[in-house]
């Protein structure tokens, strides 16, 4: 990962936490209070959820299939509306601008017929003048940034390769690149490594850990208790749409987590 990218983010993190005492918790980037989420069918999928995400932390949401993890993530990303409760961004500093949030869905949401570079550039569409970007013309500086991120993520030889021809791990990296080019404060990732082999999973999560050290927060859903125990700073457990635990990962052991998920 690029030293420049790290330094920039680390500086921002230091700035953000400079007013906190050494033993205090890092600044919160998100606080959700009493959040209820439902689908158009009318059934409540997430009930009365309280969560908080800390800056530069990896928070993993664990739970069985259908426990409401994905719905909670979609609610936080704004894809579905919160029916009750509130989501507050930067609750510790009301003057702080809204954080930039990037979302990576379970199947990554990459456009298969486009190259790794083109997929990465999708992340900056909001910031590039409409007409030029519609003609697929991006400023050289933006293109260079995208190429640099892809190179930093180990995809230097695959920049102009179609996503359909990339391996699972490489696609995962392209999705991360698309998120990173948005300069996000928070990355929401749904079942991020569930389709990958053990070695690639390890690589991707280590990369995530490194990025978290630069100040980016992660909120990730997963089924894998062991991975959560190893890589998460905080763990949230959901059961039947309710949050049954929200604690530091260090305070929890695998058997305890498995017991709570069941």
């Amino acid at each position: 990962m690029s030293a420049v990218l790290y330094t920039k983010r680390a500086d921002r993190l230091k700035k953000n936490i400079s007013h906190l005492k050494a033993d205090a918790l890092p600044e919160r980037i998100l606080e959700a209070k009493g959040v209820w989420l439902r689908y158009p069918s009318g059934a409540d999928v997430v009930c009365d959820a309280d969560i908080q995400v800390f800056r530069g932390n990896i928070t993993m949401i664990l739970g069985r299939s259908g426990s409401g993890k994905t719905t909670l993530l979609r609610g936080i990303s704004g894809i579905i509306n919160v029916s009750r409760g509130s989501i507050q961004w930067n609750p510790d500093d009301e003057n702080c601008p809204l954080p930039r949030v990037a979302y990576i869905p379970q199947t990554l949401g990459l456009v298969r017929s486009m190259t790794a570079l083109e997929n990465t550039l999708i992340g900056v569409l909001r910031d590039v003048p409409g007409f030029l970007s519609l003609c697929n013309i991006f400023p050289a500086s933006v293109k260079d940034k995208a190429k640099k991120i892809l190179t930093d993520l180990g995809l230097s030889g695959k920049i102009d390769t179609r996503v359909s021809r990339l391996s699972g791990g490489q696609r995962q990296r392209v999705a991360i690149a698309r998120a990173l080019i948005q300069d996000p404060d928070l990355i929401l990732a749904d079942e991020f490594v569930s389709h990958l082999d053990a070695v690639t999973t390890e690589e991707i999560l280590l990369m995530m850990k490194n990025l978290a050290e630069t100040g980016i927060s992660f909120l990730v859903t997963t089924h894998d208790v062991e991975l959560a125990q190893r890589f998460a700073d905080r763990v949230i457990i959901m059961n039947h749409g309710r949050i049954v635990l929200d604690d530091d990962a260090d305070n929890l052991s695998c058997p305890v987590l498995i017991g709570l998920i069941k």
Binding site: R74, P105, L110
Partner: peptide, 9 residues
């Protein structure tokens, strides 16, 4: 999911 991923940018 492709729509959601692109829309979320």
């Amino acid at each position: 999911e492709v729509i959601e991923a692109v829309r979320s940018t």
